[in-house]
Computed example of a mutant assay.
Amino acid sequence: MLKSSGGKFVRLDVTLDTAIYPEHSEFTPFRTLTEDISAGGASIRLLIGTAIQSVSQLYLWMPLTLKSGEFHYLRLKSKVIRVTEKSMEICCCTSNFLNLQKMIFRH
């Protein structure tokens, strides 16, 4: 489903497996899911207490599966804009992609 983000990109409600890696070893890399994604950034589910702070820079690795069964991995450098609490256990991290030139790795 499409939704307006109030910004210049349309956000898509899509759940993608995502691995999050810190830029400078601030935390241990981990896997999670997106809540939505746009050409400008992504909203990512986090457990309460995850050591990600606003303005942190990180790398999001997202696998894309083609109909052929081939995988492509996007490695997207991102900046955390805000972390907001959604429930007692889950918070949401809003991030902006820092460069829209994605690096694609084939598997």
Score class of each variant (00 low, 15 high):
N99E: 06
L60T: 02
W61C: 10
Y21A: 02
G6H: 06
Y21Q: 06
G49H: 05
A39D: 09
S4C: 12
M103G: 02
E26W: 03
S68G: 11
I44P: 02
L33V: 10
F71T: 08
I48Y: 09
F71H: 14
T65P: 01
I104M: 10
L64V: 13
E35G: 07
V83G: 03
Q101L: 09
K77T: 07
S38E: 05
F9V: 00
A51W: 07
L12P: 00
H72Q: 15
D17Q: 13
K102D: 00
Y21R: 04
L66C: 11
L47R: 13
Y59D: 00
S38T: 04
R82D: 08
G41E: 01
T84A: 10
R45S: 14
Y73K: 06
G6D: 02
L16M: 10
M88V: 11
F27L: 05
L98H: 03
R106L: 11
A51P: 14
V10R: 04
I20Q: 00
A19W: 00
D17A: 09
C91H: 07
E70C: 15
F105E: 13
M62I: 15
L74S: 09
K8F: 04
Q101D: 11
L33S: 11
V55Y: 15
E23D: 09
G40K: 05
Y21W: 04
L47A: 13
T15W: 01
E23P: 02
L2N: 09
T84Q: 08
S78I: 05
L100I: 03
E35K: 13
E23A: 12
Y59E: 03
M88K: 15
E89T: 14
R45K: 15
H24E: 09
L74A: 12
S68P: 10
N99A: 05
G7V: 05
R106G: 10
P63H: 04
S38W: 04
K79D: 00
R82Y: 10
K86G: 08
V55H: 14
E23M: 14
F9E: 00
G7Y: 02
I52C: 08
C92W: 07
L58D: 04
N96V: 06
H24C: 10
G7C: 02
T50P: 05
V14C: 04
A42Y: 03
N96F: 06
